[in-house]
Design a protein around this nucleic acid. Structure first.
Lengths: 241, 241
DNA sequence: AGCCATATGTTGCCTAGCGAACATACCAAG
DNA sequence: CTTGGTATGTTCGCTAGGCAACATATGGCT
């Protein structure tokens, strides 16, 4: 709707050799990703992998008592459903649409076949997985040591990097759930960022005004994760060639 | 010294088909792992992968300000150096010997060749990697939501599972560093566990007396991680066959 | 225009855990 | 036996962030 859908807006698909992409293309299905939609549940069956193009997916761990925490964000730089090719079939995490948009899905069996060719597609998927691991590890550290404000900055930056925009459609309540903090705590942090002129928001719309300052106010975790993604997946057309 | 060194004390090596293992075996080198030894540094070159047998390795993220947090534990159930076969060559984490013992190392180039056969060895390594991912993700959640005492219980249990013993040689100071908390906070938690009769310790020696109670006092994270390891790597001889 | 659901702002209280400073206890080497 | 280094215990004050209860504002709808 906003952008004409081209699977190659997804960086992984874009990085494929034509010969590989041409095999995949006929099997890609466009999927709408409405806000809050659960792509899969903890421990559930994975029939598809997803290549986000204009949406962002959040990987959440939900605990027995209902509280949750985001462990990674997947956007147009990646793929959702790594456990299919890693061999585990499922994961104990939940995948939720964090920012509405569209993406493409591919039958899991098809992806597994591609992966098992043990060629460029496999190498690309594994490199992406390593970047994702870095993101999870950094999230663990961030949860341990950083303030809500720092984490909010990191989260905004990581999310914006995965959209072609400086704007997010997202209530504070939802962000708080993702970060695993109280809504009030998040409001307070957001407030400070707004009065400092870094962001502006109202009723579920957040606009980043001053990105450089946001980066300065973020913890180092953002840079570490970004650097690792850039290192492992330089966004050059055709890395997997 | 304590046990006669057999590479197959490592569960991954043990799970290999004889034909695969026989290729690896001549290339395995026994390595001593003294407490505190740094196997590799964040971002450093990885020349070897390591298969712990009687030691435990801790994967730590160290931050700019020097504070740190453990993101995963690797013992005789696993392998250290996944980024070699994942394609990234390095990771932003540090690997430190957390419990002294021995292990085997294998030249990275050799492992990569084995991995690229795209057979049982590759499948086994990827399944292990997924289990490790679960451990990292659960660590992130645990850091967010659980008390120091709960985390200590989880940590003790995960560590013991990787040793054939109910005893750890480990000061509270070191455990605190691993968990990314203050030594005093850890002392307090350890104190409570001791007076409750779950553990006994003195000067760097911790003995678990009542494991069932320790499990009850731990957060759910321990069970989640353990269940996922068991699911992905059932410790049957020859899973990778 | 007026209404209502929902998003955001605010306040008070409480606890976990941080930081620092210090006390004690234990083991090993001289 | 003494001494010193290291491991553990304890205390005090402080702050971030949890929980609860409520006030306000805003945008879409009738």
């Amino acid at each position: 709707m906003t952008t004409l859908p081209d699977p190659r807006q997804n960086h992984l698909l874009d990085a494929l050799l034509s010969s590989d992409y041409d095999r995949l293309f006929p099997n890609l299905e466009l999927v709408k990703m409405p806000l809050g939609h659960v792509l899969y549940e903890s421990g559930g069956q994975l029939d598809y992998v997803y290549f986000p193009t204009t949406c962002i997916i959040s990987l959440l761990y939900v605990m027995e008592n209902g509280s949750s925490a985001e462990i990674a964000i997947v956007g147009n730089e990646g793929i959702l459903g790594i456990s299919l090719f890693m061999g585990g079939e499922t994961t104990p995490s939940r995948a939720v649409v964090q920012s509405a948009g569209v993406g493409y899905r591919l039958a899991g069996s098809f992806l597994k076949t591609e992966f098992n060719r043990a060629g460029p597609v496999q190498r690309l998927l594994l490199r992406y997985t390593q970047a994702l691991i870095t993101q999870m590890a950094q999230t663990a550290v961030c949860n341990r040591h950083h303030t809500v404000e720092q984490q909010l900055c990191r989260w905004l930056l990581l999310s914006l990097d995965r959209l072609a925009s400086n704007e997010l459609t997202m209530t504070q309540e939802l962000i708080a759930n993702m970060l695993g903090v109280r809504r009030e705590g998040l409001t307070e942090a957001a407030c400070k960022l707004q009065t400092s002129g870094l962001i502006e928001y109202s009723r579920g719309r957040i606009v980043v005004i001053d990105r450089p300052k946001l980066e300065m106010r973020s913890c180092e975790c953002y840079q570490v994760v970004k650097a690792e993604f850039d290192r492992l997946l330089p966004s050059l057309h055709g890395i997997a060639k």
